[in-house]
Write a protein that binds this DNA or RNA. Structure first.
Lengths: 188, 188
DNA sequence: GCTCTATTTGAGTGAACACTCTAATTCCTG
DNA sequence: CAGGAATTAGAGTGTTCACTCAAATAGAGC
């Protein structure tokens, strides 16, 4: 067999990524050092650099995971309702607060250091806006497309604003607020 | 006269704060080093530490300035309309994008390193929510207070979400989107 | 012009950082 | 069980960081 040749390496790789996420949650992007990751993963620096080319590569991997987590069925059926999409967002923020914080942090500070990353995040945001618009159009038949674009963009902005609040305030009930946004949408 | 004894020191202090804001805008919180500040302000490290106890103190000073900038008339007449408040927010984000980015960055990463700062930002957010609610109540007579709280909170969240978008996307027209939020509010 | 304080200088310190390298070890494969 | 590749250990490298400090300078008040 060839597939299990690097089994140990894959396990270590997961430990590194888990440790990186924990450190990011506890100490932020500034506190994310290779030493901190290695200490938590109980490995030495040599192993780290055997599996990752740089610390930045670990961050990028975690961010990619965060982006996929917020849109679990990006390549799914494509006929979700608006509340499906909002509920997916709620699940992401509530179940994976660490990744939510990482995502926002990288979006803010990553755009400066790595233009590609900034572009990727913007593209992801535009795709999500499109999905929300299309879902709203399906929910409310007869709604003008321009109005749907406008309303879904505002809804998405409010969700992002609430997500921001949730990240900086552990006591904030993100789920309740997000669901309330849905009920504020004018009925069909 | 005693008041002009430290004139030179005050000038240098301003140069340091201006330089810090420029560096923050160009390179983010990670790129903010004492050396970068001193180079831009054309001073040596000794002068820096003659006027500030630490780099953190400079950051805190800049953040306090940002908080005051977003609420220019915090202790003003207290009878502003909702559009007044939104316009003040727009002016802040459009005219001072540097401070806007700093504010969001600090809110995200600062809460971890300095709990006081996180508390301060949350308190500021709550105060702003109250002002928005009261303005909405004045605009729409007969509106239930709980509904006003809910709607103004959603509006504020959307504004914050749009501000986030503006910070990571230079081409985003924040003013237009923010004003559109106002027109989406149900008429009186 | 003298004095005294505020200010600036610039070399220096130690710690922390990301990352490298070689030798040892583990463990799959044949 | 032997060969070899994958993995790991851990000391080490050079850089950058925030911050210090003794000495030089500047400038206001008498």
């Amino acid at each position: 067999m060839h597939g299990v040749r690097n089994r140990a390496g894959l396990e270590t790789r997961d430990r590194i990524l888990d440790a990186a996420k924990s450190v990011l949650a506890a100490r932020g992007l500034d506190g994310l050092t290779v030493k901190a990751i290695c200490d938590l993963a109980e490995i030495r620096a040599g192993s780290f650099y055997n599996l990752f080319r740089s610390k930045e590569q670990v961050v990028l991997t975690v961010v990619r995971e965060a982006i996929n987590a917020v849109d679990p069925d990006l390549y799914g059926s494509g006929d979700s309702s608006l509340s499906d999409l909002v509920n997916a967002y709620i699940r992401f923020v509530v179940d994976q607060p660490v990744l939510a914080r990482v995502y926002l942090t990288i979006a803010l500070s990553g755009g400066l250091t790595d233009p590609d990353l900034g572009q990727r995040i913007l593209r992801h945001h535009r795709e999500r806006h499109l999905r929300f618009s299309q879902a709203l159009l399906r929910d409310r038949e007869g709604l003008a497309e321009s109005i749907a674009m406008e309303r879904s963009e505002a809804l998405l902005a409010a969700l992002n604003g609430y997500a921001f609040h949730a990240v900086i305030d552990a006591h904030f009930d993100f789920g309740a607020h997000a669901r309330r946004l849905l009920s504020m949408e004018p009925a069909p």
